[in-house]
């Protein structure tokens, strides 16, 4: 098992001086993910918080080879890099023993929504790439618009709560399940508060031959509206309420990686977050019930799949 002391001794691939918010979850995710391989790494980053906050010219926070081309195409961009690597190896212009890992990265906007097609295509074609989505449940880079990863009832600027609306009316899209349906070798959900689990999953993903996908919950104090010192606690609550189950699907086989001793009510996840504040109005009580029902259904289904 990896020790934090040893990880801390490794070279930072994402360095200080970036512009991400106080208490942001993104750097915590990539502190772990980028240490999960010691091979040279090339990253293609979708437009979003991570991209914008790390590369304001002439400064860059990347101490690793990195490219950004657009919002919706991190997967196809990294697929292109990987294809050239394959081509040049075939043609003998890259030594046979030179190993490089290829990583696509995007937020939920660039992954669940606008980048879904490119991601699906790259996964289906079987490129030897890893894709990591940091899911902060909104278009946080541009001020918190809804995404298909925004949970039911959350107020976002394009699904605002109001006298006639309880916030987002739709259920969160289950992207991980969509990726499982691609029958790729490795798909997993993770969270930065369970760093060993995240580290192991990232290692597996990098070691996988062919495409691998990690969906990582990413707390966002700016858009979720909670005390920014509480991110890790909140992530733990997401696991304990089963709002964000940790699991992996390796060659089609499901495994749940965290089972709460006592499954907590979804209310505990909702309460600390300002984006859900309006749900405590009388007329929105049904949303709380519905949210709980959906989480229960998903958890039950996941347990069934894990027992198969």
């Amino acid at each position: 098992m990896a020790k934090l002391k040893d990880l801390a001794a490794m070279e930072d691939r994402l360095v200080a001086g970036h512009g991400m918010c106080l208490g942001c979850g993104i750097p915590l995710i990539f502190r772990i993910v980028l240490r999960a391989t010691e091979d040279p790494l090339i990253i293609a980053n979708a437009t979003g918080c991570l991209e914008v906050c790390t590369t304001i010219f002439p400064r860059t926070s990347w101490n690793v080879t990195w490219i950004h081309s657009a919002f919706e195409n991190a997967a196809s961009t990294i697929a292109g890099v990987e294809s050239m690597y394959k081509a040049l190896k075939n043609k003998g212009r890259i030594p046979e023993d030179k190993k490089i890992k290829f990583l696509g990265v995007g937020g939920d906007g660039g992954t669940y929504d606008i980048g879904l097609q490119a991601l699906s295509g790259a996964m289906e074609r079987g490129h030897d790439i890893v894709y990591v989505c940091y899911d902060n449940n909104a278009y946080a880079n541009t001020g918190g618009q809804r995404s298909s990863a925004t949970p039911l009832g959350a107020s976002a600027t394009t699904s605002p709560e109001g006298t006639q609306s309880p916030g987002k009316l739709q259920r969160k899209k289950d992207l991980t399940k969509i990726l499982v349906a691609h029958n790729i070798p490795y798909v997993a959900q993770a969270s930065p508060n369970r760093w060993q689990d995240l580290y192991k999953k990232a290692q597996k993903a990098f070691e996988t031959e062919g495409p691998a996908f990690l969906n990582v919950l990413c707390f966002c104090p700016t858009e979720w509206k909670y005390d920014e010192s509480q991110g890790i606690r909140l992530a733990q609550t997401a696991l304990d309420t089963c709002v964000w189950p940790l699991y992996e699907v390796e060659n089609g086989k499901y495994k749940i990686n965290y089972i709460p001793k006592e499954k907590k009510p979804v209310l505990e996840w909702i309460k600390p977050q300002g984006r859900f504040r309006h749900l405590f109005k009388e007329e929105n009580a049904w949303v709380l019930e519905e949210y709980q029902k959906q989480v229960d259904e998903d958890w039950e289904e996941l347990n069934k799949l894990a027992k198969l």
Binding site: V15, A16, G17, T54, T55, P58, R59, T60, S61, V64
Partner: peptide, 25 residues
């Protein structure tokens, strides 16, 4: 000092890896 257009690396490339450490957050 900010570069003129002639001094910039072609292709919008930043070759100074990790220089954001100069931004004191």
């Amino acid at each position: 000092k900010k570069e003129t257009w002639k001094e910039l690396t072609i292709g919008t490339i930043n070759l100074d890896a990790g220089n954001s450490v100069k931004n004191l957050t």
